[in-house]
């Protein structure tokens, strides 16, 4: 790595599914504190790339390095414990539990690590975790619904809660997989506001997004993926002006 600011380095990653070359020769460098968007048409390999980063899929060749640690071959929980959290395309939440407990669980994961047989203390004597979780919910504007079952929330609120579940762990890197997919304009806008708000905390973010409005209002850097390859890389303005990108993706609409 030549650039000392690079915190996540996807190095020469290839991923094949049988005959399909889903990712080819991906080289991606994400700098500390930046919001790095990955865009591209459907089937370009965006989700595959995210799954390779988070350890859900093993690359056919190449590796992913996070702050000097090789992520390839590690399990999702180990990758999380290194400081990487993920927001899913369809919110992955604890639907049967209350909103407050949904946020307390990741807070306990951060404090106690991957496994701890903590069964002598009552949950209500975990005042530190409790206060932290309530503050977090206050932060994302969900304190009022803390006693509700998470499964009964609206889609926008589920996403907001999932974000809170990630943020409470103070991750160094946050991965967002289409955080506004399937949301109304209103929910999309509140999510953008929330993401802008947490941007000031200096957390590095990798965001996969379809919605150009979201991408151009959040990203510092954009990589454009098409047919499993990165065809352009740069600031939003550079990418917007790139003729190859216009052709492959933006289709002249911008």
């Amino acid at each position: 790595m030549t650039n000392p600011n690079v915190v996540l380095h996807v190095a020469d990653v290839h991923k094949r599914f049988g005959g399909l070359h889903a990712l080819a020769d991906i080289d991606l460098q994400v700098e500390e504190g930046q919001t790095h968007a990955i865009i591209g048409p459907n089937g370009a390999g965006k989700s595959t790339l995210l799954n390779v980063i988070i350890g859900k899929l093993a690359p056919t060749s190449g590796q992913v390095v996070f702050d000097g640690t090789i992520l390839t071959g590690r399990k999702p929980y180990q990758i999380n414990q290194l400081g990487i959290a993920r927001v899913f395309q369809t919110p992955e939440i604890f639907a049967d539990l209350s909103v407050l407990h949904n946020v307390m669980i990741p807070a306990l994961a951060k404090r106690d690590g991957a496994f701890r047989l903590n069964m002598l203390r009552g949950l209500d004597s975990e005042t530190g975790i409790l206060r932290e979780s309530e503050d977090m919910l206050e932060d994302v504007g969900m304190f009022a619904s803390r006693e509700m079952a998470a499964g009964s929330l609206s889609r926008g609120d589920k996403r907001r809660m999932e974000l809170a579940m990630c943020l409470i762990q103070h991750p160094r890197l946050l991965l967002l997989d289409e955080p506004t997919a399937g949301m109304s304009r209103h929910d999309t806008n509140t999510t953008i506001e929330l993401l802008k708000k947490i941007k000031s905390r200096g957390m590095t973010k990798v965001i996969i997004e379809h919605d150009m409005h979201v991408v151009f209002s959040l990203a510092d850097k954009i990589s454009v993926l098409a047919q499993g390859r990165i065809i352009a890389d740069g600031t939003p303005d550079q990418v917007r002006g790139n003729p190859k990108v216009q052709e492959a993706y933006l289709g002249g609409t911008h």
Partner: peptide, 8 residues
């Protein structure tokens, strides 16, 4: 979610 939250 438990796995991605850092629990073994």
């Amino acid at each position: 979610r438990m796995n991605y939250t850092g629990f073994n």
